[in-house]
């Protein structure tokens, strides 16, 4: 079961743990967006900042690599497609113009994913949910509390659904599903019972929520925007400003 789950909240007292979840989400959007701008100075500074923050939050580098290994394979594929070209004589060659740009783009994407993981590792789901409610509150015609609850439940139940899917696949393999060559047949054998089971579980979940007096209007965790949040936000904005000025005016 443990191997099927992604990185979740890990308690601690690091700087990232102490930041307001709203600050972390704003930083993820701001810095994440700017990472895709392919500014090498900003990427370098962010790499140093994230490495320091990750180390302080006791995030293991090897565990991180393990968690994003499939994403890294995907990035390697994207890199190969962008950089390696086929010449007129059917020989492979590296496009030097695209090389630098591709490296910067992939570097930025890796940093965005690392930022997302750091957010998950250092923030309780209930706090992420509370921040989401705060952000969505001014949006008209959106029930921010329902959306936040859905996000919370999805994070909670995704590992269970994956576990059930793996268990069901094992049970079907034990009864020789591998001998059936028709992929549609195999897919239907797998998906229909899985969905049926998930819907039954959903019924149980709904009853459990009702039994514990579930309501949209619940007590949310208290969010505190402190001086350190303001400082960090300013620091990132300054980093962005400096990076733009250095690389816009060589």
């Amino acid at each position: 079961m443990d191997t099927l789950t992604f990185m979740g909240f890990s308690p601690g007292d690091s700087l990232l743990h102490r930041l307001d979840p709203r600050t972390k989400q704003i930083l993820l959007i701001l810095a994440g967006g700017f990472c895709l701008n392919k500014n090498p100075l900003f990427l370098g500074l962010m790499t140093l900042a994230l490495a320091g923050a990750g180390h302080q939050a006791r995030l293991s580098f090897f565990r991180l690599i393990k968690e994003i290994r499939y994403f890294l394979f995907f990035l390697a594929g994207v890199f190969a497609v962008r950089v390696i070209t086929l010449s007129d004589h059917w020989t492979l060659s590296v496009d030097p113009d695209g090389l630098q740009e591709s490296v910067l783009m992939l570097w930025g994407l890796v940093l965005v994913v690392v930022m997302g993981i750091l957010l998950m590792v250092t923030t309780r789901i209930s706090h992420i949910r509370a921040a989401l409610v705060w952000f969505l509150a001014p949006v008209p015609f959106v029930n921010e509390r329902s959306i936040a609850t859905m996000v919370g439940l999805m994070v909670r139940f995704l590992p269970l659904i994956l576990f059930q899917a793996a268990e069901m696949a094992d049970a079907q393999r034990a009864r020789g599903i591998d001998h059936r060559k028709n992929p549609l047949y195999r897919l239907s054998c797998f998906t229909f019972p899985l969905f049926r089971r998930i819907f039954l579980k959903t019924d149980d979940l709904a009853a459990a929520l009702q039994a514990r007096c579930y309501t949209d209007n619940r007590t949310l965790p208290q969010l505190v925007f402190s001086r350190i949040d303001a400082l960090i936000l300013w620091a990132v904005l300054v980093m962005m400003g400096v990076s733009i000025s250095v690389f816009s005016h060589p």
């Binding site: 979740g8 909240f9 309780r124 789901i125 209930s126 919370g152 439940l153 994070v155 909670r156 269970l160 579980k201 149980d204 979940l205 009853a207 459990a208 929520l209 039994a211 514990r212």
Partner: peptide, 13 residues
């Protein structure tokens, strides 16, 4: 308290 504790537990921690 339900028979299947997994269905009842809704919090991540």
């Amino acid at each position: 308290v339900f028979q299947d504790a997994d269905s009842q537990i809704v919090g991540e921690t």
